[in-house]
Amino acid sequence: MNLTLRIWRQAGPDVRGRMVAYQVTGVSPDMSFLEVLDMLNERLTLEGADPVAFDHDCREGICGACGVVVNGVPHGPQKATTTCQLHMRHFRDGDTIDVEPWRARAFPVVKDLVVDRGALDRVIQAGGYVSAPTGSAPDAHALPVPKADADAAFEAATCIGCGACVAACPNGSAMLFTAAKVTHLGLLPQGQPERQSRVLDMVAAQDEAGFGGCTNTGECTAVCPKGIPLETIGQLNRDYLQASRRPARSRS
């Protein structure tokens, strides 16, 4: 296959970026999208040009490092598939493909397709955990958890923190990310003691980090590579309302 890639090039955070077109030839349909970028970078290096910077690591769809906007859609056209698992058999010979970084106020561009997603870590710091210091745990079977709850908690916990939801949201909101964690821990008995402070503090941290508000557009769940359902946001809203109606439970 021969393709035209129009890629966002930006030398640094404070430099103006622009789309640059590159012809790539000899693309195999069995290649992953990132392998095409690898191939382009090999050529750019030998031509004396600066290769395209992009984040990636595991290349099996679980670390959450990769992610670019392909033809306007975070992670590209395949549903529930990260960029690294997107294979070229889903494109046609002669296609022109636009490749851009995540765009959101909370994710400043570092270089080319690489953005800073540290804001997501700060949301977790605000309460995305169960306070269980090492050594304090009772026997694992001390507290049975209904299978349905454990399964639903697991579904929410599969979030890989890639940030596609933020990139897809017209408001640049991280609500699906936050809701996934609130739902995961809120469904388990271990998460109950901090359930109210967790939701209040994580939502506050989200606002502080520069993420926008949620207007239930649903673009987030449509692009989520792990298919985190929109209902988690409903769950977050219920928890938030319940927590807000009680005397202040925030820790901060």
């Binding site: 269980a132 304090s136 745990a137 009772p138 454990a150």
Partner: peptide, 22 residues
Amino acid sequence: VEIIDQCVAQGVPFAREYGGLL
């Protein structure tokens, strides 16, 4: 043995059976 206890306490959603046990 302690690792499993610790992880369950943290909210790691291990697979469970219908009785609620791991």
